[in-house]
Structures are given as C-alpha cells and as structure tokens.
Design a protein around this nucleic acid. Structure first.
Lengths: 215, 215
DNA sequence: AAATAAGTGAAGGCATGCCTTCGTTTGCCG
DNA sequence: CGGCAAACGAAGGCATGCCTTCACTTATTT
C-alpha cells in the first residue's frame, strides 16, 4: 500500500512527504484538525507549496493521518473480541477509545465532530462492526444493559469529546471520571428507567458529515 | 439596571441597540458565539459601525446576551431548591440545564467551552451555589451518590455540549439519551466502583477561560 | 555528463472577519 | 426653529488562512 502510493516519488520528495506527515501528526495531535497548513509546513521545514503539491488540500492530509489512527481503532476493537470476560472486553474497549481521544485532539475531532473522506469509511465500518460484536456479546452475557447500542458508543465518544474540548490541558484526567460514571450506568445490575430512543445511525452520520461543511 | 445603562441614549440609538440585541440573541442561538458580527449587524438591519459603537467588541455583546441566559440559570437552580423530592429536584435541574444548552448554541458554548467576562461571574457563582445546595440535599437524602460534586455537573454540561455539537440538527433528541444514561449512574442504589477524582474547580475555571484565548 | 522531468520555494492573489475613519444625517434642547 | 452633539453608514485598513504561479534547482536517466 505504501509502495504503490509512493511509486514514482523522487527520493527528496519522499523525504519531504515523510517530514510533512510527521509534522502533521504532531500538529493535529496538539492543535486539532483546524491547525493552519502553513504551520504544518513550518514545522516540517518545508515550503507551503511543497505541502500542497503532496496533499492537494487539507482533507487529503487529514485523511492520510487519520488512516493510521483508524487502523489503531480497528485493531483495538478486534482485540477486544479476544478478551475473555464480555463486560471487561466492553469496558476496556470504551476506555481505550476514549483514551485515544484524550491523547490526540485530531482523533477527537476526526472521530466525532466531523467525518472526513470516503477513504476512511471502510476501516471505520470494520471497526464499528467489531464494536457491535463486543457490545452484543456483553449484552448476551447479561452484564451490559440490553438497550445499549452502537450508537450509544458514538454518543459516549461525543460526550468525551465535549469534556476533552473544555478541559484539555487544565484538567487532563477529568474525562476518566465521566467515563467511569457512564460505564457504571451501562451495567444491567444498575438499570435505571428506560432510556429515550437512540439516534439512528443515519442521523448520526448526517450530523457528523454536516459538522464541517463550510470548506 | 436597564434604565441606568441606557441613560442618555438617544431614542434612535436606543431602538438600534434593541434591534442589535434581538438579532444577536437569535444569531448566537442558531450559529453559536463565533458568528460574524457583520452577520448580526445585517440581521439587525444596522450598519456594522453602529454595532461597534454600542458594543466595543464581541465580548461585550456576548456578555449582554449571556447575562439573560445566566439569569435563567440562576432562576432554575433556585427554583429547584423548592422542589420537595431531593432526587427529583436534582434530576430535573440537570435536565433543565441541559435543555437550555440544547435550545441555544450560544448557551452551550458560553456555559462550558469558554467563560467570557467578569460581569457574569457573580450570577454564575450564585447559580452554582444553589446547584451545590441541590446536590448536597440529594446526597444527604441518600439517593444521589455521595461522591457526586458540583464539578461533576460541569462535566455533564461539557459532555452534553459535545453531543450537541456533533448532533445538532440531525439528531436533536440524542442528548436526552445521554443525560438519562448519566442520571441513572448518579443514583446511590446503582453505585459502581469508585470514581476517579473530580477535577478541581480551579482547574475547570482555568480550562474554560483558556478555551478561547486567541482573540 | 547532458537532457529532462520532477520538485522546490518566494511571492502574491483571494476571501473572510475584525475593527476604524470620516463625511453626512438626525434627534433633541433651548 | 436653529444649532449642535450624537449617531449613522459607506468605505477601507489590517490580519489571517487558503491556495496558485512561476522562475529556479535537483535527482534521475541514458
């Protein structure tokens, strides 16, 4: 996959591409997906035109970087399927995903606020499929409340994004408390009154792709 | 309060001020606090210079609008103290606050993502004091988990803001599900494992006021 | 080593949003 | 009703961020 994409890149171009990717990874992590491309170029010690030659627009660069994170997501979800205890598999997966968000502002925005690029749709669907299986297993085991769905995980991610957006830096552990609270609410043995209906997957997708339309 | 502020305003100026306030209220509600001031002026059918004469900068305008919302917040919190059942008082207050966020994008951002202006600090402190009393009462009654604090309510508001930011429009009821889930987790009779420590008030304040520094 | 295709970077055009200036208009008071 | 302080709005200056152009440099190929 690497080879085929970079086939025909001159060696200096290849090096610059790498510098840009590295700089972008850091910049997106620290400053979010809205960081000026000019800053990425600066960090990469490369001219802005070079960046634009390699990545025609911001979306392309975001896609390239998020692809890696999405792969981690897939890996984590599929790994969770191997954990013995169904509840632990679920709980640890949620914590892991939220931890990825906490560790990287670009991930936070890329996974919830907006959803860039069709190229990420395939890995994303694969991850979500694994997530659904983990959820289903925990539900069947009787520990996860039966009305919990994949959309609820999306809600949790969005909620986490909200906390992270407001506390990043000043209260870096705050998200853990929220997630612990929520996880507690997900167990069958602590069922409260019935939940309001979950949003439809379609609606969530629509919401996410319309979240950053003005570009 | 109105009278003293507008003392000495010419009648046409007073009218324009009112138009600006009205337009700003709508614009902040629909588009958030970042809406271009020029758009507010357009909606108010007033020249941009007129707006700037009346409100020296965006913060001043935001403050004027949020003051009203903050007053509603105070009112809701103090009204909750009058509800008989301690748990209901708490739960309804949380729902009410989150409902205010859902109904107004400016409120969402103003209450969590950033915290503009010292002028709002007094009503805010008053509201939070009432909130704390509601929390304390529900804890004493034994229904609210004993480790729940005022900071947790802030966390809930931030979480809600995250869901709203990602779903506004497309899934307008999604936030209700999250809040129901979280409220369920707050009850003593559904206690899970101990929560991670709450962020300090100071940290939360720092986080919020640093959230929109670049202006 | 010369030819050439590809890559580079300085500079600039375009759009948006903030805020100010200044000549004109208008409400208000004696 | 006449004069003036106050308010108004058209236009423009400034900053930022996106993206492109074009003259020059450099890696590769024969």
């Amino acid at each position: 996959m690497d080879a085929c994409k970079r086939r025909g890149l001159r060696r200096d171009a290849e090096i610059n591409r790498e510098r840009i990717m590295t700089a972008a990874r850091v910049a997106f992590r620290e400053r979010g997906l809205d960081v000026p491309l000019e800053e990425i170029a600066r960090r990469a010690e490369v001219n802005i035109a070079t960046l634009y030659r390699r990545f025609p627009d911001r979306e392309a660069l975001i896609e390239a970087i998020l692809a890696d994170h999405m792969a981690d997501f897939v890996e984590a979800a599929e790994a969770a399927e191997l954990t013995d205890d169904p509840w632990e598999a679920f709980a640890e997966l949620v914590e892991h995903i939220c931890g990825m968000q906490a560790a990287d502002q670009g991930v936070t925005e890329g996974f919830t606020v907006c959803f860039p690029g069709a190229a990420l749709e395939a890995p994303r669907a694969r991850a979500m499929a694994a997530v659904e299986r983990v959820i289903e297993r925990a539900r069947r085991a009787g520990t996860l409340r039966p009305d919990f769905t994949g959309q609820d995980l999306m809600l949790i991610m969005m909620a986490n994004a909200g906390v992270l957006g407001s506390t990043r830096g000043a209260a870096p552990q705050a998200w853990r408390r929220l997630i612990a609270l929520i996880l507690g609410a997900c167990r069958t043995d602590r069922l409260g009154p019935p939940l309001p209906p979950a949003p439809s997957t379609t609606d969530l997708h629509a919401a996410m792709s319309s979240a950053r339309p003005q570009r």
